[in-house]
Amino acid sequence: MKRALITAGASGVGLAMARAFDREGWRVWIADLDGAALGAAPDTWQKSHVDVSDETAVKSLFDEVLERWGGVDALCANAGIAGPTAVIEDIKLQDWQACVAVNLEGAFLAAKYAAPMMKAQKGGSIVVTSSTAGQYGYPYRAPYAAAKWAVIGLTKTLAMELGPFGVRANVICPGAVEGARMEGVLEREAEAKGMTRDDVYAGYASGTAMGSFIEGRDVAEMAVFLSSENARLVSGQVIAVDGFTVNPDPKV
């Protein structure tokens, strides 16, 4: 049975990924910082309370994965935080660093400790969650956009380094995803721009060719595909799941 590890897998997009892998018959292991959400996840999954920006904690997670599972076939480095919403001159360095620590360093650490396992078994898939902000930029969200651009470079490099060992690495760039996290973003952007939450929402939706937000399951199904044999020669790719962003700056 194939084995999938998903960071930030207890809620949102990560939970949708875990459910999608589970439906396809994979063994599932989720890591998350939210203890309550972990507790609510199915008991048939392996669960670990982990801060992805803490190298000691991440190393311990992968040590346990190796001990219990003997390796991992799919890593979904999905953990991320929104970071501050402000013009660049108002962003505090510590807020910048906190955002980069989770979004970029968290993906780096997960890949660092998954890579030796996958190289040893001569195969595996690493899927990193970026964002359309990592393709176009994102006004008022400089730390987030910078980190999400950076994970694309990280993942393309992983694809080059690990390809000779049969390991693939790809990036998914979700657009605006329905859910609690995006609601927080909408509220903060509305305040920063002097707009209503509904106007900001409409701006995001109208900025896509399909005129819609996406759902976690849309991202999850792509993660499962990229980790499957159907994508055996898909590597180093940046795939947007966003309804096709035609206007990355959501003004109304």
Rank of each mutant, 00 (worst) to 15 (best):
L5I: 11
I6M: 09
G9Y: 00
G12M: 07
R19P: 01
F21W: 00
F21E: 01
A31R: 02
L38T: 07
A41H: 01
A41C: 13
A41E: 02
Q46A: 14
D51Q: 13
D54C: 13
D54E: 11
A57F: 04
A57S: 11
V65H: 02
G70C: 10
G70P: 06
L75K: 06
N78Q: 03
A79F: 03
G80H: 05
I81H: 04
I81L: 14
P84V: 07
D90F: 09
D90C: 08
Q94D: 15
A101V: 15
N103Y: 08
A107D: 01
M117N: 04
M117A: 14
G123H: 05
S125G: 14
I126G: 00
V127S: 01
A133H: 00
A133F: 01
G134A: 11
Q135T: 04
P139V: 12
P139A: 13
K148F: 05
I152C: 01
K156T: 08
T157Y: 02
T157S: 15
M160E: 08
M160V: 15
E161L: 11
G166E: 08
V167N: 06
N170D: 14
A176D: 02
E178W: 14
E178M: 15
E178I: 13
A180L: 14
R181G: 08
G184A: 13
L186Q: 06
A190R: 07
A190C: 13
E191F: 02
G194D: 09
R197M: 05
D198T: 12
T208H: 13
I214T: 05
M222H: 03
A223S: 14
L226I: 08
S227W: 08
R232D: 09
Q237E: 15
A240K: 03
T245M: 11
V246T: 14
P248Y: 05
